[in-house]
Amino acid sequence: MARRTARRSHTIRPAASRPADPGCPCGLPAAYDDCCGRLHRGEAAAATAEQLMRSRFAAFARRDEAYLLRSWHRDTRPASVSFDPGTRWERLEILATKDGSAFHTEGTVEFRAHFTDAGHAGALHETSRFTRQDGAWVYVDGVIDA
């Protein structure tokens, strides 16, 4: 007589896991701690104007006033940065860059920063100017495009 093996019924359950890291708020796929977090903590400096722009967007998204002020040109830096509690910075698109590499002293970055404000989607389109101050890239000012 053939031997039958009893079959057990198995319930397959998804493994418990933490949510996947969505990447840095700046839009690059690296985790925040390995990307803009290093700049925010002062462990690294932005190598390009675009990297500084991305790190500043991430600082707005994370409400890091200290980093924003540190990365602002001393001649145009405000006394403080206020954050609208209803605004959430969602996504950054870099549209164009001019100069701003390790070989330049000035550069511009055109970007579109997507946000929600009280549940309504919006976007800020700006061309920002950057320069080197004491060897480090800093934000000077920007022109908001309609």
Rank of each mutant, 00 (worst) to 15 (best):
T5N: 09
A6W: 13
S9E: 13
S9G: 07
S9D: 13
H10A: 12
H10I: 14
T11P: 08
R13A: 11
R13V: 10
R13C: 09
P14M: 06
P14H: 10
P14D: 10
A15R: 15
A15W: 14
A20V: 15
D21R: 05
P22E: 11
G23P: 05
C24Q: 07
C24Y: 00
P25F: 03
C26V: 05
L28F: 05
P29C: 11
D33E: 13
D33G: 12
D34F: 12
C35I: 03
C35S: 03
R38Q: 13
R38G: 01
L39M: 10
H40D: 08
R41S: 14
R41H: 15
G42V: 01
A44D: 14
A44I: 08
A45K: 04
A45S: 15
A45I: 12
A45T: 13
A45D: 14
A45Y: 06
T48F: 04
A49G: 07
E50N: 04
E50Q: 05
L52E: 06
L52D: 05
M53E: 04
R54P: 02
S55V: 01
F57A: 01
F57D: 00
A58I: 04
A59E: 01
A59C: 08
A59F: 03
A61I: 10
A61N: 01
R62Y: 01
D64I: 00
D64L: 00
E65I: 02
E65M: 10
A66V: 15
A66G: 14
A66N: 14
L68I: 11
L69H: 06
S71E: 04
S71K: 05
W72Y: 07
W72N: 07
H73R: 10
D75E: 15
T76L: 11
T76S: 15
R77N: 08
R77Q: 13
P78L: 09
A79P: 07
V81G: 04
V81C: 07
S82W: 12
S82T: 15
D84G: 08
P85K: 12
T87E: 09
W89I: 01
E90Y: 04
E90L: 11
R91C: 02
R91I: 05
R91W: 04
R91A: 07
L92F: 03
L92T: 02
E93C: 03
E93V: 03
E93M: 04
I94T: 06
L95N: 04
D99P: 03
S101M: 13
A102W: 07
T105I: 05
T105C: 08
E106K: 07
G107V: 00
T108C: 07
R112P: 03
H114A: 04
F115T: 09
F115S: 05
T116G: 08
T116I: 10
T116D: 14
D117K: 11
D117P: 05
A118R: 15
A123F: 09
H125S: 11
E126Y: 08
S128P: 10
S128H: 10
R129S: 09
T131V: 09
Q133K: 00
Q133V: 03
Q133M: 06
Q133A: 03
G135M: 12
A136E: 14
A136H: 11
V138S: 00
V138H: 02
Y139V: 03
Y139L: 05
Y139M: 01
V140N: 12
V140D: 09
D141T: 07
D141K: 06
G142A: 09
V143M: 12
V143S: 11
I144Y: 05
D145H: 13
D145K: 12
